[in-house]
Amino acid sequence: AVAMQGKASKFSTDQDPNTFEEITNYNNFYEFGTGKEDPARHAAAMTTDPWSVEIGGLVDRPGAYGVEDLAPDAALEERIYRLRCVEAWSMVIPWIGVPLASVLDKVGVQPSAKFVAFETLYRPDEMNGQKYPILDWPYREGLRIDEAMHPLTILATGLYSDPLPNQNGAPIRLVVPWKYGFKSIKSIVKITLTDTQPVATWQAMQPSEYGFYANVNPQVNHPRWSQGTERRIGAGLFGGRQETLMFNGYADQVASLYAGMDLMKNY
């Protein structure tokens, strides 16, 4: 594969990124199985070229877009982000991608649009996990329009200097660093602008455990486990735990999006 390069960004953290090996061998991508090693083992079966993303709903220029159209080489940026999984582990990942806002501007969001809905590829022949009713396939996620337009929100197409590996959501995925990892939907084939709150797979399955917002919040525990601390993958056998930060440490940039909202209810 061709090497990728993205312009440095002021939004990147200066924390040490996890290794390429760690990032590509410890994944939650239930389309390929529920084990953390399953995606690395099985994701090669997914065809990512050709690929098109169908963008529709309340937009001026609906249609099928190629990955190159949405994330042209010249626009790529490097974004080194913390990732906090809802399972209370974390990593630091150097993504390459473009702001989602740039994509939405390209297709022209109509003023009546309030939410963005995303959908992952559904292809059970190539995605073995989809043969079982683990989740309600295809995987779906959504953002409020202001969250989607926020400069931290990106569509990633690369990792380190490589095109995104399949197990990490090739060829194009969402990354929202202040939310639990499951919001950052992988291998996107459909983006729809709507005026109603879209279905999100985990929220629909277990609304008492997973909310629509899913903002990283150490004060709101998952009903079955604490969210107060996290374990950094790669920290070694006795690396211990670190405090989980409000909005995963991005509070300065994003807390204003939720001003006046009760985050205990809107988790």
């Binding site: 079955r224 486990w225 604490s226 601390t229 374990r231 056998l237 006795f238 735990r241």
Partner: peptide, 21 residues
């Protein structure tokens, strides 16, 4: 106790009484 929780006794105590698993 040691590797996963890093001997965070207070959190462990709270978690045991609150978390079904």
């Amino acid at each position: 106790l040691s590797m996963d929780m890093g001997f965070l006794w207070a959190q462990m105590g709270r978690d045991i009484v609150k978390r079904p698993y």
